[in-house]
Design a protein around this nucleic acid. Structure first.
Lengths: 129, 129
DNA sequence: AAAGAGTAGCGAATTCGTTCGTCACGTCAA
DNA sequence: TTGACGTGACGAACGAATTCGCTACTCTTT
């Protein structure tokens, strides 16, 4: 048998989604121009990927426009939350806390960033005292 | 052409690793017993997966023991960090901060957990005043 | 109208992940 | 010793992901 279909976007799909999130909407050509810089694949591949993603519902397209314009079907934020939740579930045994602690202790956080995290914690604690 | 090999463990591989992390080391039979509860696959499949993972270097095995004992080649913590870093890179455009903020704002954090996060922030700030 | 250029779609080819059937071997009890 | 049983190794098979070649259209431009 084969592996089950993942509900998560794959590697390349994610790269394309990032391009679309940044642009807000692009033609196949525009997506290709951005994609080929990091992947070196052909135009044909890009178009195929877009059509696959269309079938999966990952992107929508405006067919009235010429050339057609593609947009991400889901916002970046929603997608991030989904994938984050998935990681927490599958890799952190459902513990968001240990993920957060590990992300912080990775040592990449600047003072400013730590301050932001603190602010967020303050806010959340204010809501449930 | 086909897709490139990912350096990250796949879905099933991850499930097996979690079993091994928890047990600290198991025979194929033991892994299978745990795996079949969530997957319903055959013993043959489990053994095959283990041998694939052995080739990939995801697990080691003690061949002197009978039956052979498998252990995860990498600690859970290291694997988590790798996968977390990957997610940050590919989904959060390299910003650990936005991942942390999103994880916190998901609203799943209890008061105790928030306190732990605060403690971590305190510690980190203490190191770079 | 014919040539040129870009857009879109289809299907084939390739590799990976996953699953399983089957065979070979070793051990242990009857 | 022989038969039952568990362990382990292959290789086949299938679907998913990815890549690309080729064809068909649609506009321009000459």
């Amino acid at each position: 048998m084969a592996r089950a279909v993942s509900n998560q976007p794959t590697e390349v799909e994610l790269q394309i989604l990032r391009i679309l999130w940044e642009s807000g909407g692009s033609t196949a050509r525009e997506v290709h121009n951005a994609l080929t810089e990091i992947k070196g694949t052909t135009y044909s591949t890009t178009v195929k990927m877009l059509s696959v993603m269309l079938e999966k519902g990952l992107v929508r397209r405006d067919e009235t426009a010429t050339p057609q314009v593609y947009r991400a079907a889901m916002s970046q934020k929603v997608t991030q939350k989904k994938m984050l939740g998935d990681l927490i579930e599958k890799v952190y045994n459902g513990s968001a806390l240990s993920l957060v602690l590990q992300a912080l202790s990775s040592g990449k956080a600047s003072a400013d960033e730590l301050a932001e995290v603190r602010k967020m914690v303050d806010e959340l604690e204010g809501k449930k005292p």
